[in-house]
Amino acid sequence: MTSETPRRSGLRGFGHAGPSPWTDLDRPPLDAAGLRRDLVLPGGLWTSLDVVTETGSTNSDLAARAREGAAQGAVLVAEEQNAGRGRLERRWTAPARSGLFLSLLLRPDEVPVERYGWLPILVGVAAAGTLSRVAGTEVGLKWPNDLQTEIDGTERKLGGILTELSGGAVVAGLGINVSLRADELPVPAAASLALAGATVTDRATLLRALLRDFAVLYTEWTAAAGDPHASGLLPAYADRCTTLGREVRVQLPGDRELRGEAVAIDGDGRLVVRTPDGNRQPVGAGDVVHVRPEPH
Protein backbone atom coordinates (compact mmCIF):
# COMPACT_ATOMS: atom_id res chain seq x y z
CA MET A 1 0.00 0.00 0.00
CA THR A 2 2.46 2.52 -1.21
CA SER A 3 2.79 5.70 -3.15
CA GLU A 4 5.63 8.13 -3.52
CA THR A 5 5.29 11.48 -1.79
CA PRO A 6 7.72 14.33 -1.21
CA ARG A 7 9.17 14.15 2.28
CA ARG A 8 8.37 16.87 4.78
CA SER A 9 9.61 16.93 8.33
CA GLY A 10 8.38 18.08 11.70
CA LEU A 11 5.26 17.70 13.77
CA ARG A 12 2.20 19.90 13.62
CA GLY A 13 -0.19 20.01 16.52
CA PHE A 14 -3.85 20.86 16.39
CA GLY A 15 -3.19 24.58 16.78
CA HIS A 16 -1.73 25.13 13.31
CA ALA A 17 -3.47 27.21 10.68
CA GLY A 18 -5.10 25.25 7.89
CA PRO A 19 -8.21 23.24 7.06
CA SER A 20 -10.32 22.29 10.05
CA PRO A 21 -10.12 18.59 10.98
CA TRP A 22 -13.92 18.69 11.14
CA THR A 23 -14.34 19.43 7.41
CA ASP A 24 -14.93 15.69 6.81
CA LEU A 25 -17.52 14.66 9.40
CA ASP A 26 -16.99 10.99 8.54
CA ARG A 27 -13.41 11.39 9.78
CA PRO A 28 -13.45 13.29 13.08
CA PRO A 29 -10.15 13.92 14.86
CA LEU A 30 -9.05 11.77 17.76
CA ASP A 31 -9.50 13.10 21.29
CA ALA A 32 -6.00 12.79 22.76
CA ALA A 33 -7.05 13.79 26.27
CA GLY A 34 -9.82 11.19 26.33
CA LEU A 35 -7.49 8.48 25.04
CA ARG A 36 -4.90 9.32 27.69
CA ARG A 37 -7.55 9.24 30.40
CA ASP A 38 -8.62 5.73 29.34
CA LEU A 39 -5.24 4.21 28.51
CA VAL A 40 -2.43 5.88 30.49
CA LEU A 41 -3.12 4.34 33.88
CA PRO A 42 -0.96 3.75 36.99
CA GLY A 43 0.82 0.42 36.73
CA GLY A 44 -0.20 -0.03 33.09
CA LEU A 45 2.03 -0.47 30.05
CA TRP A 46 1.17 2.85 28.44
CA THR A 47 3.02 5.81 29.99
CA SER A 48 2.25 8.57 27.49
CA LEU A 49 0.02 9.07 24.48
CA ASP A 50 0.32 11.90 21.99
CA VAL A 51 -1.75 12.65 18.90
CA VAL A 52 -0.29 14.95 16.24
CA THR A 53 -2.09 16.35 13.23
CA GLU A 54 0.69 15.55 10.78
CA THR A 55 4.22 14.20 10.73
CA GLY A 56 6.63 12.48 8.41
CA SER A 57 6.79 9.14 10.22
CA THR A 58 5.68 8.23 13.73
CA ASN A 59 8.39 5.57 13.78
CA SER A 60 11.10 8.11 13.04
CA ASP A 61 9.76 10.52 15.65
CA LEU A 62 9.48 7.88 18.37
CA ALA A 63 12.90 6.44 17.47
CA ALA A 64 14.37 9.88 18.14
CA ARG A 65 12.67 9.92 21.54
CA ALA A 66 14.03 6.44 22.26
CA ARG A 67 17.58 7.63 21.58
CA GLU A 68 16.97 10.40 24.11
CA GLY A 69 16.01 7.79 26.72
CA ALA A 70 12.20 7.96 26.59
CA ALA A 71 10.47 5.45 28.83
CA GLN A 72 8.72 2.30 27.68
CA GLY A 73 5.06 2.70 26.89
CA ALA A 74 5.10 5.90 24.83
CA VAL A 75 2.45 5.91 22.09
CA LEU A 76 2.54 8.36 19.18
CA VAL A 77 -0.45 8.62 16.87
CA ALA A 78 -0.56 10.76 13.70
CA GLU A 79 -3.75 11.85 11.99
CA GLU A 80 -1.68 11.95 8.79
CA GLN A 81 1.78 10.74 7.78
CA ASN A 82 3.51 12.13 4.72
CA ALA A 83 6.59 9.88 4.84
CA GLY A 84 5.31 6.71 6.47
CA ARG A 85 7.41 3.62 5.85
CA GLY A 86 6.51 -0.02 5.47
CA ARG A 87 8.52 -3.20 5.03
CA LEU A 88 11.24 -3.31 2.37
CA GLU A 89 11.52 0.51 2.41
CA ARG A 90 8.08 0.99 0.85
CA ARG A 91 6.23 4.26 1.38
CA TRP A 92 2.85 4.38 3.09
CA THR A 93 0.43 7.26 2.49
CA ALA A 94 -3.27 7.77 3.15
CA PRO A 95 -5.70 10.69 3.51
CA ALA A 96 -5.83 12.50 6.85
CA ARG A 97 -7.81 10.72 9.58
CA SER A 98 -8.60 7.80 7.25
CA GLY A 99 -6.79 5.22 9.34
CA LEU A 100 -4.80 4.43 12.44
CA PHE A 101 -1.17 5.42 12.08
CA LEU A 102 0.81 4.91 15.27
CA SER A 103 4.04 3.77 16.85
CA LEU A 104 4.80 2.18 20.22
CA LEU A 105 8.03 2.48 22.22
CA LEU A 106 8.88 -0.79 23.93
CA ARG A 107 11.79 -1.82 26.16
CA PRO A 108 11.40 -5.58 26.70
CA ASP A 109 14.39 -5.84 29.04
CA GLU A 110 13.28 -9.26 30.32
CA VAL A 111 13.54 -10.69 26.80
CA PRO A 112 16.79 -11.82 25.10
CA VAL A 113 17.56 -9.65 22.08
CA GLU A 114 17.46 -12.68 19.78
CA ARG A 115 13.73 -12.97 20.49
CA TYR A 116 12.93 -9.36 19.57
CA GLY A 117 12.00 -10.61 16.10
CA TRP A 118 8.74 -11.87 17.60
CA LEU A 119 7.57 -8.33 18.39
CA PRO A 120 6.20 -7.46 14.92
CA ILE A 121 4.39 -10.80 14.97
CA LEU A 122 2.96 -9.95 18.40
CA VAL A 123 1.73 -6.59 17.09
CA GLY A 124 0.13 -8.38 14.16
CA VAL A 125 -1.61 -10.97 16.33
CA ALA A 126 -2.98 -8.23 18.61
CA ALA A 127 -4.17 -6.11 15.68
CA ALA A 128 -5.78 -8.99 13.76
CA GLY A 129 -7.54 -10.23 16.88
CA THR A 130 -8.81 -6.79 17.86
CA LEU A 131 -10.08 -5.91 14.39
CA SER A 132 -11.81 -9.26 13.96
CA ARG A 133 -13.52 -8.96 17.35
CA VAL A 134 -14.35 -5.25 17.45
CA ALA A 135 -14.84 -4.36 13.79
CA GLY A 136 -16.63 -7.59 12.93
CA THR A 137 -14.42 -8.24 9.91
CA GLU A 138 -12.27 -11.35 9.80
CA VAL A 139 -8.62 -10.29 9.60
CA GLY A 140 -5.68 -12.63 9.01
CA LEU A 141 -1.92 -12.27 8.77
CA LYS A 142 0.04 -12.91 5.63
CA TRP A 143 3.55 -13.88 6.70
CA PRO A 144 5.20 -12.17 8.37
CA ASN A 145 2.73 -9.47 9.44
CA ASP A 146 0.62 -7.98 6.66
CA LEU A 147 -2.96 -7.52 7.87
CA GLN A 148 -5.35 -9.04 5.33
CA THR A 149 -9.07 -9.29 4.80
CA GLU A 150 -11.22 -10.68 1.99
CA ILE A 151 -13.42 -8.57 -0.25
CA ASP A 152 -15.52 -10.44 -2.81
CA GLY A 153 -13.39 -13.54 -2.28
CA THR A 154 -10.10 -11.74 -2.93
CA GLU A 155 -7.40 -11.22 -0.31
CA ARG A 156 -6.62 -7.55 0.16
CA LYS A 157 -4.08 -5.75 2.34
CA LEU A 158 -5.59 -3.82 5.22
CA GLY A 159 -2.45 -2.70 7.01
CA GLY A 160 1.15 -3.35 7.85
CA ILE A 161 3.72 -3.32 10.63
CA LEU A 162 7.32 -2.13 10.84
CA THR A 163 9.60 -2.52 13.87
CA GLU A 164 12.99 -0.88 14.38
CA LEU A 165 15.66 -0.87 17.07
CA SER A 166 16.59 2.55 18.47
CA GLY A 167 18.32 3.57 21.69
CA GLY A 168 18.07 0.07 23.10
CA ALA A 169 14.30 0.11 22.52
CA VAL A 170 12.00 -1.39 19.93
CA VAL A 171 9.78 1.03 18.05
CA ALA A 172 6.80 -0.78 16.57
CA GLY A 173 4.85 1.06 13.86
CA LEU A 174 1.38 0.08 12.71
CA GLY A 175 -0.78 1.40 9.90
CA ILE A 176 -4.39 0.31 9.37
CA ASN A 177 -6.72 1.58 6.67
CA VAL A 178 -10.04 2.31 8.34
CA SER A 179 -12.29 4.51 6.19
CA LEU A 180 -10.53 4.70 2.81
CA ARG A 181 -12.99 4.76 -0.07
CA ALA A 182 -12.43 2.81 -3.26
CA ASP A 183 -11.16 5.85 -5.17
CA GLU A 184 -8.65 6.61 -2.38
CA LEU A 185 -6.88 3.23 -2.36
CA PRO A 186 -3.21 3.58 -3.35
CA VAL A 187 -3.24 0.24 -5.20
CA PRO A 188 -6.03 -2.17 -6.22
CA ALA A 189 -4.77 -4.83 -3.80
CA ALA A 190 -5.37 -2.51 -0.83
CA ALA A 191 -8.44 -2.54 1.39
CA SER A 192 -10.03 -0.70 4.28
CA LEU A 193 -12.29 -1.77 7.11
CA ALA A 194 -15.12 0.27 5.61
CA LEU A 195 -14.79 -1.43 2.22
CA ALA A 196 -14.72 -4.82 3.96
CA GLY A 197 -18.08 -4.07 5.58
CA ALA A 198 -16.85 -3.52 9.14
CA THR A 199 -19.57 -2.89 11.71
CA VAL A 200 -17.29 -0.53 13.69
CA THR A 201 -15.02 2.05 12.04
CA ASP A 202 -14.71 4.54 14.89
CA ARG A 203 -10.96 5.00 15.21
CA ALA A 204 -10.98 5.84 18.92
CA THR A 205 -12.90 2.65 19.73
CA LEU A 206 -10.51 0.57 17.64
CA LEU A 207 -7.41 2.25 19.09
CA ARG A 208 -8.50 1.75 22.70
CA ALA A 209 -9.23 -1.93 22.10
CA LEU A 210 -6.00 -2.47 20.17
CA LEU A 211 -3.76 -0.93 22.83
CA ARG A 212 -5.50 -2.84 25.61
CA ASP A 213 -5.27 -6.15 23.75
CA PHE A 214 -1.64 -5.57 22.85
CA ALA A 215 -0.74 -4.77 26.47
CA VAL A 216 -2.15 -8.12 27.61
CA LEU A 217 -0.25 -10.11 24.96
CA TYR A 218 2.97 -8.13 25.50
CA THR A 219 2.83 -8.69 29.27
CA GLU A 220 2.40 -12.44 28.75
CA TRP A 221 5.23 -12.53 26.22
CA THR A 222 7.71 -10.60 28.39
CA ALA A 223 6.73 -12.68 31.46
CA ALA A 224 7.77 -15.75 29.44
CA ALA A 225 11.09 -14.05 28.50
CA GLY A 226 9.87 -13.86 24.91
CA ASP A 227 9.45 -17.61 24.54
CA PRO A 228 6.90 -17.97 21.68
CA HIS A 229 5.69 -21.34 22.93
CA ALA A 230 5.39 -20.61 26.65
CA SER A 231 3.68 -17.29 25.98
CA GLY A 232 1.22 -18.82 23.52
CA LEU A 233 2.31 -16.41 20.79
CA LEU A 234 3.38 -19.03 18.24
CA PRO A 235 0.09 -20.98 18.22
CA ALA A 236 -1.90 -17.72 18.26
CA TYR A 237 0.03 -16.53 15.20
CA ALA A 238 -0.34 -19.86 13.39
CA ASP A 239 -4.11 -19.64 13.90
CA ARG A 240 -4.18 -16.21 12.22
CA CYS A 241 -1.58 -16.82 9.50
CA THR A 242 -3.23 -16.97 6.07
CA THR A 243 0.01 -18.18 4.47
CA LEU A 244 0.17 -21.58 6.17
CA GLY A 245 -1.06 -24.45 4.03
CA ARG A 246 -0.79 -22.37 0.86
CA GLU A 247 1.35 -22.70 -2.23
CA VAL A 248 3.69 -19.72 -2.16
CA ARG A 249 6.30 -17.94 -4.19
CA VAL A 250 8.87 -16.18 -2.03
CA GLN A 251 11.01 -13.39 -3.44
CA LEU A 252 14.29 -13.74 -1.53
CA PRO A 253 17.11 -11.23 -1.13
CA GLY A 254 19.48 -11.23 -4.08
CA ASP A 255 16.72 -11.69 -6.69
CA ARG A 256 16.30 -15.35 -5.77
CA GLU A 257 12.94 -17.12 -5.71
CA LEU A 258 11.62 -20.03 -3.70
CA ARG A 259 8.47 -21.97 -4.51
CA GLY A 260 6.64 -24.56 -2.46
CA GLU A 261 4.06 -25.07 0.27
CA ALA A 262 4.14 -23.02 3.46
CA VAL A 263 3.95 -25.77 6.08
CA ALA A 264 5.00 -24.25 9.42
CA ILE A 265 6.30 -21.34 11.47
CA ASP A 266 9.47 -22.29 13.35
CA GLY A 267 10.64 -21.19 16.81
CA ASP A 268 12.38 -18.16 15.33
CA GLY A 269 9.28 -16.93 13.50
CA ARG A 270 10.57 -18.05 10.13
CA LEU A 271 8.26 -19.44 7.45
CA VAL A 272 9.06 -23.05 6.63
CA VAL A 273 8.52 -23.85 2.95
CA ARG A 274 8.43 -27.42 1.65
CA THR A 275 9.84 -27.43 -1.85
CA PRO A 276 8.65 -29.83 -4.59
CA ASP A 277 11.62 -32.14 -3.84
CA GLY A 278 10.46 -32.52 -0.22
CA ASN A 279 13.07 -30.33 1.44
CA ARG A 280 11.92 -27.94 4.17
CA GLN A 281 13.54 -24.53 3.93
CA PRO A 282 13.12 -21.82 6.60
CA VAL A 283 12.72 -18.27 5.30
CA GLY A 284 13.62 -15.37 7.57
CA ALA A 285 13.08 -12.52 5.12
CA GLY A 286 11.31 -12.22 1.81
CA ASP A 287 8.21 -11.10 -0.02
CA VAL A 288 5.55 -13.81 -0.11
CA VAL A 289 3.00 -14.24 -2.89
CA HIS A 290 0.09 -16.61 -2.32
CA VAL A 291 -0.19 -18.72 -5.47
CA ARG A 292 -3.73 -19.54 -6.56
CA PRO A 293 -4.40 -23.22 -7.18
CA GLU A 294 -4.51 -24.22 -10.82
CA PRO A 295 -8.11 -24.74 -12.03
CA HIS A 296 -9.01 -28.36 -12.72
Rank of each mutant, 00 (worst) to 15 (best):
D50N: 11
L119V: 11
S48E: 14
M1S: 13
V111G: 08
T5N: 12
G269L: 04
Q251M: 08
L100H: 05
P112E: 03
L174P: 04
R270D: 08
P42M: 00
A238T: 09
R8H: 12
I161V: 13
F14V: 05
L102I: 03
T2Q: 09
Q81R: 14
E150H: 12
R7Q: 07
L141A: 10
R27S: 10
K142N: 02
L104I: 07
E164Q: 15
R246T: 11
A189I: 07
V272A: 10
L162R: 07
G267C: 00
W46M: 04
G175P: 04
T201Q: 10
A198M: 13
R37L: 01
G15M: 04
T2V: 04
S103I: 09
D38H: 03
Q81C: 07
G286K: 09
V273D: 11
T199I: 06
E294H: 13
W221Y: 08
W143D: 14
V75N: 02
A126Q: 07
V291D: 00
G197W: 03
W143R: 15
V272M: 11
Y218Q: 09
A224F: 02
A182E: 15
D152C: 11
D239S: 13
V123G: 15
L258E: 06
G168S: 10
G69F: 02
A74I: 01
E138G: 04
W143V: 14
L30D: 08
P95S: 03
P186K: 11
A32F: 00
L174H: 07
L207Q: 03
L62F: 08
G153N: 12
